[in-house]
Design a protein around this nucleic acid. Structure first.
Length: 490
RNA sequence: GGGCUAGUGGCGAAGUGGUCUAACGCUUCGGUCUGCAAAACCGACAUUCCCCGGUUCAAAUCCGGGCUAGCCCUCCA
């Protein structure tokens, strides 16, 4: 079964074939660093992280590049407001970005190019476009001549004529309009303004326009044609359309074979965005107690191209869902020893990279079939739940009966399969060291005995009090038939 | 006004011509267990997939029309 991906360029699912066998060059259009990342960014980062992980698992050597746009009006405005510099603001939010992504278990890219580090490439690209007649200078600015590129609009599926009707309001107010030969033209280079950072160039001091840095970074780091260019659907137009317009005439080659776009995160039926002010930052949400893995699960339960609605109910539901999955993932740590597995003390125990699973097994096949279908993560997650529930059931039997009919090696295979597949989705759980336990075993045993006496005296108020007290300390009691009570860390 | 998506149970969400009396998760309600619980397990919860037509032996799935929603056309993941 081949992997199929929905290509925005052709508006259909296509069989994925990389340019170079076994290798994938992937570029994710990252963030403009002028504020903390919100859930919308989280969705994009997570879904492309998974695309990358899945391609790797499918055997590709993936080179994953993600940019930071660190030259931008909004960064500048923030710097002015804070009495700081553009560089300082950018640096701070890049740092924050890495902190947030580490919590969400997003793998690091191979490279993180920045606009400020790519000035040579940007200038070279503008120069090439000018030479070939796609760009023209205008009093310190340089503009891209949209009408010089007949394919303009092919990604977003629009024609210049269609756009004219809606563009009226903007072009009137655009201060650059007078310099442009055509209202559709866009800036490649902007002349320096007093007090703003600028770089020397053949067209005078200035700074790059918004779209050009991505074209330049892709070319510098990955080459003329890449396999996958990914980003939010709100970037299709104008950002990605313009990238194509800049890159393809300059290199004479297609910029990317596949264009992938994720859907938006909505709040109350509206897109979450900074300008609307309806955003929730990743750190705020995680600091409020939401498990980062639950947040990942929230994003994975929907298909990446569809919009998802962010609500308190959805978050509450997914917290519970994650508990189920987590129990499955912790199965080996909790019960491996009891089942006679011999390597539970091994330093690599639980590491998916060290696990060998049966790739022909039904769960793996179903997982792969789902993921091959344009990264259908919700189908993939369904497989994880089936495995996790099976393990939870066995775990419960082991807790209560002390043994199980199930074969220890079969359970081991199931657990490892779960761990490996979950890892592809970036979902992982490690046992928490029970250092939080303030009570010693003998103290616990003593309390259980006290409770037993209270129970026999039918003093249930007292016995429940002891149970609640232990629960508050992270000890869960299990009453078994015959008046025996066992405990385990909650 | 133009372009693009989508509308499936109480909620979220897969499925895109027959195996669908519709996966999976959450919630709710029964039952087992228990002094009561918790956990877990067993079971129930859409004969139906926005509406109206059409194609077909067969449609949630294809086609036409309608209604509704979101995204883009301005900075945006």
């Amino acid at each position: 079964m081949p992997l199929k991906l929905y290509n925005t360029l052709t508006r259909r699912k296509e069989v994925f074939e990389s340019l170079e066998p076994g290798k994938v060059k992937m570029y994710y259009c990252g963030v403009t660093v002028y504020d903390y990342c919100h859930l919308g960014h989280a969705r994009a980062c997570i879904i492309w992280d998974i695309a990358r992980r899945y391609l790797s698992w499918r055997g590709y050597d993936v080179r994953y590049v993600q940019n930071f746009t660190d030259i931008d009006d909004k960064i500048l405005n923030r710097a002015k407001a804070e009495g700081s510099t553009m560089q300082e603001v950018a640096e701070r939010f890049i740092q924050a970005y890495f902190e947030d992504m580490a919590r969400l278990n997003v793998m690091e890219a191979n490279e993180y190019p920045r606009a400020t580090h790519t000035l040579d490439g940007i200038k070279r690209l503008i120069h090439d476009l000018e030479q070939k007649g796609y760009a023209y200078p205008a009093s310190g600015d340089v503009y891209y001549s949209v009408r010089a590129f007949p394919e303009y609009g092919k990604l977003s599926g629009r024609k210049l004529e269609d756009m004219q009707a809606g563009a009226g309001g903007r072009t009137d107010a655009d201060p650059e309009a007078t310099k442009k030969k055509d209202p559709f033209d866009f800036a490649l280079w902007k002349a320096a303004k007093p007090g703003e950072p600028s770089w020397e160039s053949p067209w005078g001091a200035g700074r790059p326009g918004w779209h050009i840095e991505c074209s330049a970074m892709v070319r510098d780091r990955l080459g003329d044609t890449i396999d996958i260019h990914a980003g939010g659907s709100d970037l299709i137009f104008p950002h990605h359309e313009n990238e194509i317009a800049q890159s393809e005439p300059a290199t004479g080659r297609p910029l990317s074979r596949y264009w992938l776009h994720n859907g938006m995160v909505n709040v109350g039926g509206e897109k979450m965005s900074k300008s609307l002010g309806n955003f929730t930052t990743i750190r705020k949400l995680l600091d409020s107690g939401l498990d980062p893995m639950a947040l990942r699960l929230f994003i994975l339960q929907a298909h990446y191209r569809k919009p998802i609605d962010f609500t308190d109910e959805a978050i509450a539901a997914v917290q519970n869902s994650w508990e189920t999955l987590k129990e499955g993932l912790l199965f080996g740590y909790k019960f491996g020893e009891k089942l006679g597995w011999t390597d539970t003390a091994d330093p690599f125990f639980g590491d998916p990279a060290a696990m060998r699973i049966n790739l022909e097994s039904d769960p793996v096949q179903r997982f792969q079939t789902s993921m091959d279908d344009d990264l259908n993560t919700s189908g993939g997650v369904a497989v994880l739940f089936e495995l996790a529930k099976e393990l939870r059931k066995e775990g419960n039997i082991l807790t209560h009966e002390g043994k199980t009919e199930a074969d220890a090696q079969t359970l081991r295979q199931q657990w490892q399969t779960l761990v490996v597949l979950a890892e592809i989705l970036g979902l992982a759980a490690k046992p928490v060291e029970p250092e939080s336990l303030k009570l010693t075993d003998s103290e616990i045993t003593a309390l259980i005995e006290q409770r037993q006496i209270a129970k026999q005296a039918k003093n249930f108020a007292e016995s429940d009090r002891i149970r609640d007290q232990l629960k508050a300390q992270g000890i869960v009691l299990v009453d078994k038939p015959g008046g025996v009570t066992e405990w385990h860390p909650g």
